[in-house]
Structures are given as C-alpha cells and as structure tokens.
Design a protein around this nucleic acid. Structure first.
Lengths: 195, 195
DNA sequence: GGCCTCCCTGGCATCAAGTGCCAACCTAGC
DNA sequence: GCTAGGTTGGCACTTGATGCCAGGGAGGCC
C-alpha cells in the first residue's frame, strides 16, 4: 500500500533529476549551473524541484545527512571490544555502499572545488557526530571529562582524518577504495603518535 | 600616509555596523534579521554594506578566515622541539586575543544555533588548515605518507577537539578561558589514548 | 461506473542575498 | 581651487527559496 505508483514515480523522477543535474554540474560547475537549467533539462517544474530537493545542494548529497542512524546501527553491530577507531572506520563504510567509487570520486572533486558544497559536506559531518557521539562515548568512557566531550572529539577526529585522506586520495585519482582506507589509517596513526 | 581619514572612518563605520548588527542578531536571531534591518539601524546604504562585508556572515566572523598567516606566524614562533599539539594550541590562542571571552561566548552561541554560521565557521577552519598544514608537516614529518596527509590530519584534529571543547564550554556558560583550555586537553588526550 | 477525497503539481507572486553599473561626491595631492 | 582616483548610494537584475492557490490525477467508496 505504501509502495504505490506515486512512490515509484517519485523515486524515478528524483533519480532522473539527479543524473541530469550532475551531468550539468560536472560539465560547467555547480555554481555556474542554475536551478532553472536543471529543471529545463528534465521537464519538472521549478516549484516541484524545490519540493523534491529542498535545496540545490541536496541534489549532490541526497539524504546522506540523514544517514546518521544508519551509521549508528552499523557501529552498534561492531563487537564491543573492537578498538574504537576500527569500529568507527568500518561503520562509515556503509555510506559508500550504494555508489561506485568512480561516481564517489567525481562528486568528491565537485565538492572539493565548490565552497557551498564543502560547507554542506561539513554540516553533514556535524549531523553524523550528533548521532554517533553517545554510542562512542558509551564505548570509550568519558575519561573524567564532561559528558559529550570525548564522544564528539573522537568522531570529529575520525571524520577529519577521513577528509584529509579523501583529499589526498582524490589528488591521486581516486577509484581504489582500499587505497582510501590505507590513507585514512596513515592519517589516524600520525594523529595518535604525534609528539 | 596610509592611515588617513578614509581608513579611519572606514574602520569606525565597520565597528558601528558590527555592533548594531550583533545586537539585532542576539535579540532576534541571525536568519530572522535581514540585511535591510541592519543597514536601517546604521544609516549606511545597502550597497555600501555589501562593499564593507561581502556577505551577511562576514559581520559575525570579520576577517577571521584570513587570519591563517597570523596563526602560522604564531606557530613558527614556538620552539621547534615543542610537542606539536602544545605548539598548535598555543598558536591558535592569538585568535582570541582581540575579543573578550564574554563576547566570544555570545558569538559562539550564535554560531552554534545557526546552521549558516556553523557552515561558515567550518569553512574558516579549512582555510586555517591550508595555511598551517605545511608547517605542521615540516615539524612532525610525513611518516611515509603522501605529502599533505599528516599535516592536514593533525591540524584538523586539533580544530575538531577545540570545537568539541567549545561546545561543552558554552554549555557550561563560557567565560573562563582556562576552562576551555582544560577541556581542549581532555578531548585531545581522549583522542590520543583511544583504544 | 460515478463520485469524493487527498495529495501532488505547476504557476504566480514574493522575499532575501548578492552583484553590476553609473552618476554624484568627497578626499588627497598639486 | 582644481583635478584625479577612490567612495558612496541608488537602481536594476539575478538566483535560490518559500507561501499560496487553482487544477488534476490516483485511489477508495457507494
């Protein structure tokens, strides 16, 4: 009943718009592409576009910002005695599961070169932090610090290392996910062993 | 010669606008305050406002985003054998030097509750990362990782811990800078000793 | 099948943040 | 005082985003 015609067409239209829009963005840049161009390329009305996406940035990020609970579930599924960094790193891998590395790299490059998208990207991280911090803090303990401090700091650090790794990874051409994992560990090691 | 009347009035007008605008923001919120209201409260013209500030966010952050070189200089002034975290933490203290902790806390609260400002805040961190990463990497070495990885990761981690500490600090009421320093160290310790 | 209800769509008007352009103006140097 | 160069403010315009309303299609009910 909940999977009737409307829902299906909705999803189809959404995908169609995303594909057309991404093509435009990659060709002529995100800022340089206007919403009017996007809707012209798909036949949807301008008004409906903003009902589907809410903002231009949403085309690129989709519902990624709302995936906090999904990542949290992945984290909870990890054994309790696993080192926190490993558990977190694995938990975040669920995010990339529904996109090819190539598409991910293309979007990554777009984000890296567009201030507005970088900002949205970081906002997304904040949302993830809120979702994950409590569970992380349950695992590692507060260490005597006020509630929230350690959890937020640990998640934020992992995301920081992941971003640094992504930057280098994209510069190297992207594509190989194993390489991204390796870089993330190198960044994490450097942080943890830093004098 | 470069400190003639124009420069002085420019600075005075700027301060006046910032004061009036911050009062409005704190009273009725950032998003809820329009640029037209701000210029109406100061007599300056709308057009001139955007020449002074470039964007509404700039009222709140001023030239903070461009202070990367200043922080870098402060970092360079630190002894070469000082542990990187200490050196960095001290270097960042130059940022707060020209504002009272109370004003800083008020702005911090404003930023924390306004998505657009949070995004700008994080963008600012990215700019600082770019400025500091090379010097940090010179100090700690690349550890065999590709150039840039370690520097970016270390700076980003420190900023992440500082943000986590700020969040807790603001929740506690703010005001005491020593407390903020203490919280930052606790966050950093938790990150470095995390299993 | 006819009808009614609900929700989606698209068009219109509107708002707010920026930006380009141009004429009027003011400071500084001569 | 006069000119040159930067400043100011008004205007129009672009772009993202939102409220409102009429029209229309899907699905349930008789």
């Amino acid at each position: 009943m909940s999977e009737r015609l409307w829902d299906r067409t909705r999803r189809r239209v959404q995908e169609e718009v995303v594909d057309a829009a991404l093509a435009l963005f990659l060709e002529q840049g995100f800022e340089e592409t206007t919403v009017d161009q996007v809707v012209a390329a798909t036949g949807i009305s301008r008004r409906s576009f903003f009902r589907y996406f809410g903002s231009k940035e949403d085309i690129v990020f989709g519902d990624l910002a709302e995936q906090g609970p999904v990542i949290l579930a992945a984290l909870r599924a990890r054994p309790d005695d696993e080192p926190i960094w490993e558990a977190l790193a694995h938990a975040f891998e669920v995010i990339g599961e529904h996109t090819s590395p190539e598409r991910g790299a293309a979007i990554g490059r777009l984000v890296a070169t567009t201030p507005a998208l970088r900002a949205a990207h970081l906002e997304k991280h904040l949302r993830w932090q809120e979702a994950l911090a409590p569970e992380v803090e349950r695992r590692v303990g507060t260490g005597g610090a006020p509630a929230g401090l350690v959890g937020e700091a640990v998640v934020a650090t992992l995301l920081a290392c992941l971003d640094a790794a992504s930057t280098v990874w994209l510069r190297q051409g992207g594509g190989d996910l194993g390489e991204l994992r390796r870089l993330t560990w190198q960044a994490l090691d450097a942080v943890r062993s830093g004098r």
